[in-house]
């Protein structure tokens, strides 16, 4: 396996709200994991669980409160100017909100051609741009020459992907990059990502709510809940045998066409929500929604433990310690 391309060590991020009366939101709580070169990793988890925050920290857009991000042996948050340029070329991001990721005053062409000029000097701009647009299933003639607001949500999102692919990054962090395209295009983009990983050894972290797509194509999966990793490991193992009840819930909740499937864990979540139960402040954060919770779950924090090779989980049902 060798050196991991990216390691996240004890990362924590706290936001403060309000100027006068300060309140705090702990978006990430002591997160650690490693990713090897040429892996396709999915980062899934509840809305508000800190996925975007993690992406922004890796991309150096938001500083962490504590902990470190190591890329190819270098601490990302203390790079020299030159290393920073190198980092900005090797690591690319696609942002969650395509509506605000483009400068509204410029045609989308500009974002693409700037990327070519900056990262691939000397290459034929025209050819590069057309090729990359076609790879995300856009018709270059149709979308070039337009301003961001003149494109549909899905078109804009794919232009953001195209822009990030231009520098041929080593590491791509894609935050909800298929949320606005139709199912068939989703499959195409995920297949394309798989090919980039297999053929070019690109490393991709795909943040997605599309659990189904994550299970379908990725090598590794990280499941986040309320700022903590609850399960992490080989996707195939997770697909076959999800250990954490929250992971089970995500798979159970996948919409299916056959109507009458039983969704026990989901029902519990929906009930908790209706009753207005708020998260547990001590112990396992999932306890109040978990049908298997015991006394201990409400009081003690479970720790992430390797249960099987390449399969970690933080849950008292499985923890041996």
């Amino acid at each position: 396996m060798g050196e991991p391309i990216l390691s996240i060590n004890n990362l924590t991020k706290t936001y403060a709200l309000g100027l006068a009366r300060r309140r705090y939101v702990k978006a990430l709580d002591n997160i650690s994991f490693k990713i090897n070169k040429g892996e396709f990793v999915s980062l899934v988890g509840e809305s508000g669980s800190g996925k975007t925050t993690l992406a922004r920290i890796i991309l150096r857009l938001t500083p962490p409160s504590s902990g470190e991000v190591i890329y190819k042996g270098k601490n990302v948050w203390s790079l020299s100017d030159e290393e920073l340029r190198w980092y900005r070329k090797e690591v690319q991001g696609v942002f969650q909100d395509p509506y605000t990721s483009f400068n509204p005053f410029y045609k989308v062409d500009r974002a693409l051609s700037v990327a070519v000029k900056k990262f691939l000097p000397g290459e034929d701009e025209h050819v590069v741009i057309r090729k990359v647009l076609e790879s995300v299933r856009l018709n270059p003639d149709e979308v070039l020459g337009r301003y961001p607001h003149q494109l549909s949500g899905g078109q804009l999102q794919r232009i953001a992907i195209a822009r990030a692919l231009i520098p041929r990054p080593e590491l791509l962090i894609a935050d909800e990059y298929i949320s606005m395209v139709d199912m068939s295009t989703r499959v195409d983009i995920v297949n394309l990502s798989r090919d980039l990983v297999d053929q070019y050894k690109m490393t991709i972290i795909m943040i997605t709510h599309e659990m189904n797509m994550a299970l379908y194509a990725t090598d590794k999966m990280i499941v986040l809940f309320k700022g903590r990793i609850v399960e992490y490991g080989d996707t195939k193992k997770i697909l076959k045998d999800p250990l954490h009840p929250y992971t089970q819930l995500m798979i159970e909740a996948l919409p299916r066409i056959d109507k009458n499937i039983e969704r026990k864990i989901l029902q519990k979540t929906l009930d908790a929500q209706k009753k207005g139960l708020t998260e547990s402040v001590r112990g396992c954060r999932f306890a109040y929604r978990c049908p298997f919770a015991t006394e201990r779950c409400f009081n003690e924090d479970p720790v992430l433990e390797e249960i099987d090779k390449d399969h970690y989980v933080a849950c008292w049902l499985h923890n041996r310690r």
Partner: peptide, 9 residues
Amino acid sequence: RRGITEVVE
């Protein structure tokens, strides 16, 4: 202010 309201522990 977003930049301002972030905390360093």
